[in-house]
Computed example of a mutant assay.
Amino acid sequence: MTTSSNAVKLPSNGDGLTAAALDELAQRLAPVVAQHLVNCIDVGNAPLQKGSDPTMKINRVVTINGEKRWIHANTEQEYAEKLMQLCGGMQQAPAQRHNFADYANTWFDVYAKPSIEKATATTYKRQITRYLIPHFDGISVEEITVDDVQRLFNDISGTKATKDKVKIVLNMILDAAVEDRLLDRNPLKSKRLKITGGASKVTEPYTQEEMRYMAHNLTKIVDSSDRMYFALLAFHPLRLEEVLGLKWADIDIDAGIIHVRRAVTHPDRNRPEVKDTKTAASVRDIGLSTIALPQLIPGKPDEFVCGGSNPLSYTQVRRMNDRIGKQLEFDGAITPRRFRTTVLTYMTAQKILSWPSQQPDILRLPCA
C-alpha cells in the first residue's frame, strides 16, 4: 500500500479538525460531492451540542435528495466522514429531461410568436409541426446530436430553400437550449453538417405574345372590379400583396403615379391582414401603365382599390384569378407572381429605369 505524495495534513485542535480545516476540506471534496450530492442542505451552521463539553455528541440534520437524515458524531472530523459516507451511499436523483416537442412549442409561444409578423409566425409554426416535431418525436432536447440533425435534413425532400427555412427555426430553438444549459453546444454549428437540396423553381415570365393577348382582351373581363385588379397586377412591377394593399389615395391618376405604401397578406390562408410592405425599400412610387389607366374607376380615398371598405380575402382573390382566366379564354393559368417577374424582365431587357416617361413596349400596347 502506497501513500499519495499529494496527501495534505489538515490542522487539528486536538479534538478534531479546526473550522478553517473543515472549510479547506469542503473545498477539496466539492468536485467529488457534486457527483453524488443533490440539494444537500446543512440545517444550522453551528453543531447542536448538549453542554459545553467538547467531547459531547453532535446531532445535526441534513437534507439529501429531498430526504432528511440525522448525523450523530463526537467530533467534526467524525461528522465530516459520516457525511461523506452518507452522500456516497445515496442514489443520485435522475437528471431532468426536456421533451423536444414541449420545449419547441414553449419557445414559439413565449419568444417567437409575440415578436414577429403574423405571416412569419405562421411559417415558423409550420416548420415546427411539419418537420421538427415529427423527426425529434420522443427525443429529449439533451439527447440531440449532430447525427440527429443531419438525419433530419437528409429526410426532408425538396429544395435547398425549404431546408433553409427549417434550419432557421431549429437553430433558434437549439440556441435557446444552449442558453438554458441543456446542451453544451448547438449541433447545427458543426462543420460536419451538409445541407443540400435542389434549386428553387424559377418563376417563368409570360411571353410577349401572351402579354399582348391579355392586353388586347381586357374588355372580355366582365366585372369592372376584376378589370381594375387585373390591370394593376398584370402591367406593373407589383407584388400581389402590394396590389391588394392599394387605396385610391395611393393612385394619382393626373400624374400617372402609384404610391406603394402597404401590403395585404393572408397568413391564415383566408382572412386578410393589412401590414407594412415586405421591406423598407418596397415603399416606393411607380408609373401608372397606360393600359391600366382607362380601366380605373376612382373610389373614396380611404377605400381599397380591390375590395372597397375591406381588403379581399384569400378565397376571393383565388376565385377572381380563376374567373379572369376563363373570361379571357387564356390557355395558361393566371399566376400573380409571374406578372411582376414579366414586367421586371422586360424593363431590364429594355434598360428602363424610370416611369412614366419610359415604359416597356408591352405596357404601351393599345387595349383595342
Rank of each mutant, 00 (worst) to 15 (best):
D175I: 00
A176Q: 14
A176W: 10
A176M: 14
A177E: 09
A177H: 08
V178H: 02
V178A: 04
E179H: 09
E179S: 12
E179V: 11
E179C: 06
D180G: 07
D180I: 04
R181W: 13
L182C: 12
L183Q: 00
L183E: 00
D184E: 15
D184K: 15
R185D: 13
N186T: 13
N186Y: 11
N186E: 10
P187H: 05
P187G: 06
L188H: 06
L188M: 12
K189Y: 12
K189C: 14
S190N: 02
S190W: 01
S190H: 02
S190C: 06
K191L: 15
R192Y: 04
R192C: 05
L193N: 05
K194A: 05
K194M: 05
I195M: 10
I195Y: 07
T196P: 06
T196M: 12
G197L: 10
A199F: 03
A199K: 10
A199T: 11
A199S: 08
S200F: 14
K201A: 08
K201I: 03
V202D: 15
V202M: 14
T203A: 14
T203G: 14
T203K: 13
T203M: 13
E204H: 12
E204P: 08
E204R: 14
P205N: 07
Y206A: 07
Y206I: 08
T207N: 08
Q208H: 09
Q208D: 09
Q208T: 12
E209F: 08
E210W: 04
E210R: 07
M211P: 00
M211D: 00
R212P: 04
R212A: 11
R212M: 10
R212V: 08
Y213E: 02
Y213R: 03
Y213C: 04
Y213W: 07
M214V: 08
M214P: 00
M214I: 05
M214T: 05
A215D: 05
H216E: 15
N217Q: 09
L218P: 00
L218E: 02
T219M: 07
T219V: 06
T219G: 04
T219Y: 06
T219W: 08
K220H: 14
K220T: 12
I221L: 01
V222M: 07
V222N: 07
D223Y: 01
D223H: 03
S224C: 07
S224T: 11
S225Y: 10
S225E: 10
S225A: 13
S225F: 11
S225Q: 13
D226C: 03
D226A: 03
D226V: 01
D226K: 03
D226R: 02
M228P: 02
M228D: 00
Y229M: 10
Y229S: 05
Y229P: 03
Y229G: 02
F230P: 09
F230E: 06
A231K: 02
A231R: 01
A231V: 05
A231T: 09
A231C: 12
A231E: 02
